[in-house]
């Protein structure tokens, strides 16, 4: 993986997995959501079920650039987390 690419991690249906292939780090959020959706639908994300509808439109795309401690770009696609108390 080079410096223009990123590892993508998805949290979906309570499970979490990395995509097998890196993506372009500066791709738009919409592009990343679309690629991840397709990857899940076609069973391309090990550890995540491919059955049932996959809708990531409301998911958040977080980007973490390479750092000293983690030397590669990462993108996290995740559900919103608006709550803390109740």
């Amino acid at each position: 993986m080079n410096h223009t690419e990123a590892l993508v991690n998805l949290t979906w249906m309570g499970r979490n997995a990395d995509l097998a292939q890196p993506v372009f780090y500066l791709a738009t959020d919409a592009e990343i959501r679309a690629w991840v959706t397709e990857a899940v639908r076609f069973g391309g994300v090990s550890g995540l079920p491919a059955d049932g509808p996959v809708d990531l439109r409301d998911f958040v795309v977080d980007r973490f650039p390479a750092s000293e401690t983690i030397p590669y770009n990462r993108i996290f696609v995740r559900p919103k987390t608006p709550f803390g108390a109740a």
Partner: peptide
Amino acid sequence: ALSAGGDF
């Protein structure tokens, strides 16, 4: 921060 489903 928690997700609405309380599982993330």
